[in-house]
Nucleic acid binder design. Structure first.
Length: 372
DNA sequence: TATCCGTGGCC
DNA sequence: TGGCCAAGGAT
């Protein structure tokens, strides 16, 4: 990592501010930088793309033009205006914070980073952003854009969230601020990240800092920022089976809570240690349905992922092990059904089971005798 | 510290 | 087309 600044910070800041003055997008809250509007924009932009947030901002400020009107609002109406934007706790926190501002700060958004930080929904980034952009306080505002710009500019060879890297970024971001110019500089860094220093498609030929970018000089732009250590994926062996009677396969609807709530599935479950997938599917059928089944064939191993798991789904064809074949119990489901192959298309399955279904009748034969 | 929270665009 | 990502914060 090169922490020396080619040409020095001053020249870099000068070029960056000139670029921002020329290229800054005319956003609604940039008209007058009214603190309430800046604050609202920062909340709406958390994990949300600009194009999507602007329309919501216009509708929201038309209905709630200031802290007082928002503080007097019902949560229901605030949520209605937030509908579709996602991360709804932002809306609830915003309303709670507006009421706090009305009660404790006389309806004026505080200009102090610490006071801002105390408001619900305001973290380190948003506190710095509002203090600098709305009030011109000389504090940094480091978001993912700034992290990416710095990672490339200084060729940082550790992930931006690493403590040492984060400290360097924050310290440098603070040092770069010309006195009284934090509003412009912080926005310029973020704007550069949003318009030019893009994650997958950097536009280095348009970058005002290209001549000072260490990653570009070393042809490492696409290697920066270094991704954080990927959350360790947990390999999971899962077994499931198709029990067919008279051309129909048993499926069950999962409970209303928990993972895949309300989705349909073939019974099955995790392969425990010391257990083969065949043994697991027989055991799981007994536990979940009370049925004694026997494996008649291996259909496929479907690989898929969800959240942090990487699943190998072992799929078997099954038959009733007993002559007598009672109806399945529902120990792990709210509903059961015997479904013909075409019926499965009308039910919602988790991705792994859906992959299996999509292959049935194509490269995997539907087990048992032909459909009636 | 890791995980959850929502949605739409992207390739 | 499904998996990944995008102006974070709370727990």
């Amino acid at each position: 990592m090169n922490r020396d600044l080619p040409g020095g910070l001053d020249a870099m800041v000068r070029d960056l501010l000139a670029w921002f003055a020329a290229r800054a997008r005319p956003l609604p809250w940039r008209r007058d930088y009214e603190p309430y509007r800046v604050w609202l924009s920062e909340i709406m932009l958390q994990q949300t793309q600009m194009d999507r947030a602007v329309g919501y901002f216009e509708r929201f400020t038309a209905r709630f033009p200031d802290v007082a009107s928002l503080a007097a609002a019902s949560e229901e109406e605030v949520l209605k205006l937030w509908e579709g934007l996602g991360y709804y706790s932002r809306a609830k926190n915003l309303l709670a914070a507006a009421r706090l501002v009305a009660a404790r700060h006389g309806g004026r958004v505080p200009d102090d980073p610490e006071a801002l930080r105390a408001l619900p929904g305001v973290g380190p980034y948003t506190a710095g952003a509002v203090a600098s952009i709305a009030f011109g306080r000389d504090v940094p505002a480091v978001d993912a854009n700034v992290e990416r710009v710095f990672a490339r500019l200084f060729d940082l060879d550790l992930p931006p969230r690493e403590p040492a890297t984060a400290a360097f970024i924050r310290k440098t971001a603070a040092q770069m601020i010309p006195p009284g110019k934090a509003r412009e500089l912080n926005q310029a860094l973020m704007e550069l990240g949003a318009l030019v220093c893009l994650p997958k498609k950097p536009r280095c030929s348009e970058c005002p800092l290209a001549g000072r970018c260490e990653a570009l000089r070393l042809d490492l732009v696409f290697e920066r920022p270094v991704p954080a250590k990927a959350a360790a994926y947990i390999p999971l062996e899962v077994a499931t089976g198709l029990l067919v009677r008279q051309g129909r396969v048993f499926v069950q609807k999962r409970p209303a809570t928990g993972v895949w709530a309300g989705l349909w599935e073939f019974p099955g479950g995790t392969v425990e240690s010391g257990e083969t997938p065949e043994q697991a599917v027989v055991r799981e059928f007994m536990e979940e349905t009370g049925l004694r089944v026997a494996v008649t064939g291996r259909l496929a191993v479907v690989r898929h992922g969800y959240t942090r798991y990487r699943v190998a789904l072992h799929c078997f064809s099954l038959r009733d092990a007993d002559g007598e074949a009672p109806q399945p119990a529902l120990h792990a489901a709210q509903e059961g059904r015997w479904a013909a192959l075409p019926d499965l298309d009308g039910l919602a399955f988790p991705a792994g089971h859906r992959k299996l279904i999509d292959r049935l009748g194509r490269d995997i034969p539907f087990p048992g005798p032909a459909l009636p």
